[in-house]
Structures are given as C-alpha cells and as structure tokens.
C-alpha cells in the first residue's frame, strides 16, 4: 500500500514552526517512515508548478503554518487546499493570526514606513519601499503585495483541524500525526489540543487565594517574580485562565506568565474580550477613580490580551 502523501507549507511565519517539526529529532524518522513528504519548501526543493501538477486531493494532509498577509500566500493556500484532503492549521499564526496579526492594530502604510524608512536600524537613503509592480529594463516586475490585514488560515480557506501553539509542542505534533494516520480524528474544525485552559494543569493554580483580587498590575520586569505563586495573585497579567492548555505550561515553568498563544477554548470566541471580563472582575475597586487607577497600570490592553488572536477577534483589526 502506498504511503499517504504529506505536505508542509509556510506563510507569514518566523520559521519556528518548521523548527518544531525538525525538533521532533529521531521521532521524525518514524513520521518519514509512515508517510511520503511531497512538498516542503523549507526543507525540500519543490516549485509551485510541481504542486499544480499534482492530482486534486492527492495529498492526504497538508500542515500550513503562518498567517496570511500577502497575495502570494493567499494564492498558494488556495492551490494547496485544492490538492489536499485535509488541511491542518499548524501553529498560532495559522490558527489565530498570531504575532503578524498584531499588525492589524495599525495600518499598512505605517508598517511599511516603520519597516523600510523610520526603523532605527534602517539604512535606506533612496527611500525604497516594496511595490507590487515596478518597472525594470527587462519589463515590469511583480512582487507579492502586502495585504491590509494579516489573516488566520481559516479566514482564507477551509481548514479541517488546528494545532495551536507558538511554537507547536512536540507532543501535540506526534499526537496529531498519530490521529491522522490511524484515522482517529475528532469532528472537523476541532483544535487538536485539550479542551480546558492552562489553569487546569498549572501547578501554580493551587496557590490562588480563596478570593482573588488585584489592586495594581505589574509588568514582569517590575517585580521579582515568585517562582511558585499564581501570577495573577502577584498582580502580573497571565493569560493562562483564558488560554487553551496543552503546552505543558512551558512559559510558566520558565517563570514567565502565559501570553495566550494557544488561543481560547471552544466556548469562547474572542480571547481578549473574554479576558477583560474575567480580569476586570477581580479589580479591588468600587469607584470610578479606583477602577481607573487600576486600569492605568495596564499597558497596551489590546496587544496584551490579543497578543496572538487579533485576527480572530470579533473586530479582527483596527477599524479606522
């Protein structure tokens, strides 16, 4: 029997998710043994035309990481969708828009200006800015065009499963591959990770006081972080309660609060708004002034609460 064909593709991503695949180390051999990798631009030399030449639906499963923020990526994922049986959004950017999605809180012009002109490390005396079309002696050149907003994969194509994380933990990859190979899959659209939030397994949850209240917020660098105590009880914003578990609390074990890369659990759509509802309830304040004073100690609420999920919030991006 022919081995199932598998593909990997990357869009707007940092490469960390590719790294995560490679990080499987000797376990990757088991994967390679079981499947036939037909397309993986990061590791193997395939071209678009190779994909186009494949029969529709011939790839059993394609893992796509990274957000979609250029027309080239959009075109490629549509093509891959056609050729693949299953599409798995791989990693936070593909799942939720991720870090590239934070760009949605500003506009395209500002991003280009900051990246190419005003950035402190930029040397760009000719003030060159990438253009979709530019003349050259050999005729007009075409470059992929940056989209106005970064999108999660399912905002562009139909997605069958999601594997969350920035980056994706090894265990989740192996579990997902096993599930796919054995056909032991949950309903379409499921996130292949636990259904509860980080607090479920977090060791520090036990240290939560009976009535948790917060009267001032600290950023992690502002205080000496206790290595055992719940971060919220220390006045440090930890997205753990509103973030899907399954990461083995890697950040928390490294004494850093959860930043929310796994996104919300199934009953919650808008991770940041939900966190506002939960977090604000805990304020130790009863008057406008007291509440405002606590709010003043929170820097950049949107960037903090939606660090990975701006694209998948109700608004999705800055609207004006």
């Amino acid at each position: 029997m022919a081995k199932p064909k598998v593909a990997f593709y990357w869009c707007a991503s940092c490469g960390g998710c590719e790294e995560a695949v490679v990080d499987l180390a000797e376990d990757i051999l088991k994967v390679v043994e079981a499947v036939d990798i037909v397309f993986w631009p990061c590791a193997l030399d395939f071209k678009k035309t190779d994909v186009e030449a494949m029969e529709d639906g011939s790839i059993a499963v394609t893992f796509i990481n990274g957000a979609i923020n250029s027309d080239e990526q959009e075109e490629m994922v549509h093509l891959i969708r056609k050729k693949s049986g299953l599409i798995v959004a791989f990693g936070a950017c593909s799942h939720l828009g991720g870090i590239p999605g934070l760009a949605n809180l500003t506009d395209k012009e500002s991003i280009l200006r900051a990246s190419y002109l005003t950035g402190p490390t930029n040397v760009n005396q000719e003030k060159t800015i990438p253009l979709a079309k530019s003349p050259s002696p050999d005729g007009e050149l075409h470059l992929p065009e940056l989209k106005a907003n970064a999108l999660a994969l399912d905002q562009v194509i139909d997605v069958d499963y999601y594997i969350p994380g920035c980056s994706v933990p090894k265990k989740l990859i192996l579990d997902a591959v096993t599930a796919i190979l054995t056909g032991n899959l949950p309903p379409k659209g499921s996130v292949l990770a636990p259904t509860r939030t980080n607090c479920d397994t977090c060791e520090r949850n036990k240290t939560k006081p009976e009535k948790l209240t917060i009267s001032k917020f600290y950023r992690p660098y502002e205080i000496e972080l206790d290595e055992e105590k719940c971060f919220l009880a220390q006045g440090v914003i930890c997205m753990g309660p509103v973030t899907r578990g399954g990461c083995d609390e890697r950040c928390i074990k490294g004494n850093m609060p959860c930043r929310g890369c796994f996104g919300p659990v199934d009953n919650v759509y808008d991770q940041g708004a939900k966190f506002i509802s939960a977090l604000a309830s805990l304020f130790d304040a009863k008057t406008d002034e007291e509440v405002q004073a606590i709010v003043d100690t929170i820097q950049d609420p949107a960037g903090t609460f939606y660090r990975f999920s701006v694209a998948k919030s109700y608004l999705g991006h800055k609207v004006s």
């Binding site: 509860r196 980080n198 939560k208 009535k211 948790l212 753990g240 309660p241 659990v265 199934d266 805990l282």
Partner: peptide
C-alpha cells in the same frame, strides 16, 4: 458550570455574592 470544560481557575468563586460557588 460544565464540569467537562471547567479548568478550576477559581475566578468565579470570589465573584459570587451568594457564596453559591465553591472550589
């Protein structure tokens, strides 16, 4: 409270003015 999806984060416990929620 759905036992299946409750993560035991206890945020609700202190909010209830009627002490109807226990951990």
């Amino acid at each position: 409270i759905d036992e299946e999806t409750c993560s035991g984060c206890q945020i609700c416990v202190g909010l209830c003015p009627y002490t109807a929620i226990t951990y």
